[in-house]
Design a protein around this nucleic acid. Structure first.
Length: 479
RNA sequence: UCCUCUUUAGCUCAGCUGGUUAGAGCACCUGACUGUUAAUCAGGGUGUCCUAGGUUCAAGUCCUAGAAGAGGAGCCA
């Protein structure tokens, strides 16, 4: 007999029939005569209760079988005779597929700290919290593709190994097959990368944007959704060395179209989560509220479902950098010198304390900041008519900070070249990028959305290492 | 990389101004219980007190160095 997925079984109204369920024991209770097993197969956060009557199946059938063991159960699906659940399976045949020695198995039917679970990331899928996160992560991946597909975008696989080192997005991981103890040298005594696998120095990508631009200037609307690597030594709750980034790039879009697209997308994805992952979100919400019980009311975060609905229902605040500086300059923490970095004039980069003030205290909603000073932003961003600001946009979310960074791209060849000169970016190596501006250049825009930061928002989790199955961070590449 | 904090049982943590045999809850083990809901009740401590030095009659506790983890900052998505 074929097994029924527990998620489907729990939706069933059709009782008094024989079913087969397979899964792992989450909890076990009972008395001398009867055991109650909460069985989970990963399809849903909810368990099915399996009832084992020892007088029928033998007294020893469950000896030494506890949390974590895997079972195959054939039995009758009936309306539950106990209080806590609608239905249960009364076992007729029970096979222990694989036991988990209770003395050795580290997971218990109780709360574990996230730090502990990170150390046993290979087993943490088996907890309610990571089951929920894993299902939501899948749904969000699916939602991202759905969003773009519905709007006629094409997905582009940009290269993971690249030779361009001009993107300026961060430190890079080098890719080489050279003998590290005895590399070939040039006459000058430098490492000779002409002898390396690709005949040049290569590294893992820090962004698919430049390649996505190439595609956008022929395909119109494209997006990448792939792994991204940054060798920055950053140890925070918001950074990973390996993360997944969504980068749409759209021909003929200006900065306003770009903001509209990003806002639509974030609202769509928040709604997608609410529509498709309610059970898991409810669980995470309860978990979060439990965790924050000790905090003062003012320090507690907004309830998760409420927070997601808030983003779906409210327009993001759109503010220029110059306006933001004025707000900050006149703010209480600035005047009372509560900020670690006091805002004095136009031109300084905003620190996270300033971004947090704007989002969490002043506007109390997601904020899109635009028109940053040119000198604190990347070379490819379009220069405004004032000659000193660029059409950059950052979307700031409460509790997360920058979730999206993007811009209208500089489409004028000469302006772009002089910008590259000023920043010492070699034009000959970037000939392929400049060709897009030489041949049929058009205004175009795009942005990058850190998928794990989106996951932080949707799950309410506090540490980015808990929303990716196997986090990669400085000194962390286990599993 | 910088600042702050943490490291004691399988997990979460207590352990006072240094003092005899290191504690609690949960987990686990043994037993009881005719349907449990993180079941309940009775009994049982299972330990490299992160590591290496040092101070001291005596170190889980004090000092030095290191490691690992967490939070914040910078960098950014």
């Amino acid at each position: 007999m074929k097994r029924t997925i527990i998620k489907n079984l729990l939706k069933s109204e059709d009782f008094d029939r024989t079913v087969v369920v397979k899964g792992w024991i989450r909890n076990r209770r009972g008395s001398k005569n009867v055991a109650f097993i909460a069985l989970n197969d990963g399809s849903t956060i909810n368990n099915i209760q399996v009832v084992v009557d020892f007088s029928e199946l033998g007294e020893t059938i469950m000896d030494g079988v506890g949390v974590g063991a895997s079972l195959s159960v054939e039995g009758e699906l009936i309306e539950s005779q106990g209080g806590g659940q609608k239905m249960e399976v009364v076992a007729k045949k029970l096979v222990v597929l694989g036991n988990a020695d209770p003395k050795e198995y580290p997971l218990q039917p109780k709360k574990h700290s996230l730090e502990f679970l990170r150390e046993i990331a290979h087993l943490r899928f088996r907890t309610n919290t990571f089951g929920a996160i894993t299902r939501i992560r899948h749904a969000m991946i699916f939602g991202v593709h759905q969003f773009f597909n519905d709007r006629g975008f094409y997905n582009i696989h940009t290269p993971i190994i690249t030779s361009s080192d001009a993107e300026g997005a961060g430190e890079m991981f080098q890719v080489t097959t050279l003998d590290e103890k005895n590399p070939p040298l040039t006459e000058d005594g430098e490492i000779d990368y002409k002898k390396d696998f690709f005949g040049k120095k290569t590294n893992l990508t820090v962004s698919g944007q430049l390649e996505a631009e190439l595609a956008a200037l022929a395909m119109g609307q494209v997006y990448t959704f792939g792994p991204t690597f940054r060798a920055e030594n950053s140890n925070t709750t918001r950074h990973l060395s390996e993360f997944w980034m969504i980068e749409p790039e759209v021909a003929f879009n200006d900065i306003v179209d770009n903001m509209d697209l990003a806002e639509d997308m974030l609202q769509y994805l928040a709604k997608y989560a609410l529509d498709n992952c309610m059970d898991d979100i409810q669980f995470l919400s309860k978990r979060l509220q439990e965790e924050e019980k000790g905090k003062k009311e003012a320090d507690r975060s907004m309830e998760l479902i409420e927070k997601l609905n808030f983003v779906v229902d409210n327009k993001f605040e759109r503010v220029t950098y110059t306006e933001a500086i004025n707000i900050l300059r006149n703010s209480k923490p600035n005047k009372k010198k509560k900020f670690s970095y006091i805002i004095e004039g136009w031109g300084a980069d905003l620190q996270s304390e300033h971004e947090r003030y704007l989002v969490e205290k002043h506007f109390k909603k997601p904020v899109i900041l635009i028109d940053y000073p040119a000198n604190i932003k990347a070379f490819y961003m379009k220069l405004n008519d004032d000659g000193k600001t660029v059409r950059a946009m950052d979307i700031l979310f409460p509790g997360i900070g920058e979730i999206v960074g993007g811009s209208e791209r500089e489409s004028d060849l000469e302006t772009l070249k002089s910008k590259m000169d000023a920043l010492d970016i070699p034009q000959d190596e970037m000939y392929w990028y400049l060709d897009t501006r030489r041949f049929g250049s058009v205004p175009h825009s795009g942005f990058g959305l850190g998928f794990e930061r989106l996951m932080l928002f949707v799950t309410g989790m506090g540490n980015i290492r808990d929303v990716i199955p196997f986090p990669r961070a400085p000194k962390q590449a286990e599993f």
